[in-house]
Nucleic acid binder design. Structure first.
Lengths: 254, 254
DNA sequence: CCGTTCCGTTGCAAATCTTGCAACAGGCGT
DNA sequence: ACGCCTGTTGCAAGATTTGCAACGGAACGG
């Protein structure tokens, strides 16, 4: 809506691809070099971009520290963390926490597997929304019409043969997940990796986040992983209880 | 330099403090509500801010994922990580990696202590620049005049009795650090926590990053921690070698 | 149940702020 | 030294942004 700001913000994702010099930025934006320069300067003054030795621009430190603050303000995360750690200590596998926002689902916390074989994922990374167990839980909770709207406009990449192929299949899966109150991803994202996930609910019963335990086939079979479901659900419920204020929590003030 | 962009960007740190409604944003920016609205809308379109159920604005997911990409592009981090993990396995204490950018020094990686007692820090957090061992190394490498300029404009908060009190003391400390090629922080930030740090250098010999090992008094005394110095330096040197391309690294392509 | 108040939202005209141009400066390689 | 490439600045034209004022809707209280 605001042209200038719009252009300035468009520079950031562009720089995320890698450092770029003035000319390149101007070209990609479709504006005159002098214009790009002035936008970059403003971004620089705010620390959002950084100029490296060879004069090219990179994303700046301010962005990183801001994002960090943004995550800390998500209080589900704060409450959930100790529970995730405890669960990880019990089962040993990778534990994730994810939230839904706008059209993305993203990991906001993660406790690494203690096994040498780890899966690739990272905090802040948008998840494969059509297949990830946590994504299914988060989307399954949307009202009927929104669910349909979202499903329609998604892409359905076939990561593996077991990936959700299209909107129809996805909506069916969501219905099932909604019904049973938990979700799985059995090799839908990466052939050899399975996940079990459970929802975390706020006081009003709406799903505010979802957590999952993931492990590769080589460590435990899908069946074995499923035996952890009750534990995962109990953990999620415990977090829900605390988050919605039902469970009194002992003060942890500094 | 660009008023519109300047205002828009100023909104972000403001929201980092916590969610705010339109009126509040407009006030803090010193502009009319309608203006603030339009800026927020633009930020929203780019996913930088998010509107929660109660209509208030929060920092958005895009910010988080962008920051994540920004960090991945820092290739020192990628190279250093396995070394940090290995060092952590050997010594058990918390290991940090930090870089200097503009007027900040910030942690870009961290491997947690295996001991139950942990120190508070987080990736992306600006470090206590006047006392942290890594900060000293990073600043000590600047040319004389820049070092002086930076030192003059810093604040010198007395976190503890052993904190660096003023610019003079800081410059002396930097000179010493520069001379000896390593640095410590013995209770300068938190009474009971000590750190040993070593620099990571690029091909041209300039310090591009710094790493440290930190541990609380209750686990090891400062003297004991100092015995780890050779190991820390060797690790830092190994990273330097790889980063500057001196050490051939085996391809780790996916 | 209606009047009041508080927010967010929109159309509009004034003018501020942004834009692209053209010219300049500095570094680099031929 | 000369041309070439990239980043930088002053300026005038005009598009974009701004604040205002008025509207709509929700929440509140009498």
């Amino acid at each position: 809506m605001s042209q200038t700001v719009d252009r300035a913000l468009s520079i950031l994702p562009l720089l995320a691809e890698g450092p770029a010099d003035l000319g390149r930025v101007a070209d990609r934006l479709g504006v005159h070099k002098s214009t790009a320069l002035r936008l970059l300067r403003t971004l620089h003054d705010h620390g959002f971009v950084y100029r490296q030795a060879d004069q090219r621009y990179r994303l700046g430190a301010r962005l990183i520290s801001l994002a960090q603050e943004a995550m800390e303000n998500l209080d589900v995360r704060e409450i959930a963390h100790p529970h995730l750690v405890r669960l990880n200590e019990q089962v040993g596998h990778t534990v994730h926490l994810a939230v839904h926002e706008e059209d993305e689902v993203l990991y906001i916390d993660k406790v690494e597997s203690r096994y040498p074989v780890r899966m690739y994922s990272r905090i802040g990374k948008p998840v494969a929304i059509t297949v990830a167990a946590v994504a299914k839980l988060l989307l399954a909770d949307l009202p009927e019409n929104e669910r349909r709207a979202v499903a329609e406009q998604l892409d359905y990449p076939m990561y593996t043969a077991r990936s959700t192929p299209n909107a129809d299949g996805f909506l069916k899966e969501l219905a099932k997940v909604r019904e049973q109150g938990w979700a799985t991803d059995l090799g839908g994202h990466e052939e050899s990796i399975n996940c079990v996930a459970a929802p975390i609910r706020g006081a009003d019963g709406r799903v505010v986040a979802a957590m999952s335990v993931s492990a590769p086939n080589v460590v435990v079979t899908a069946d074995e992983l499923l035996t952890l479901l009750p534990l995962v659900r109990r953990t999620a419920d415990a977090i829900s209880g605390e988050y919605s204020g039902r469970t009194p929590v002992k003060e942890v003030t500094a």
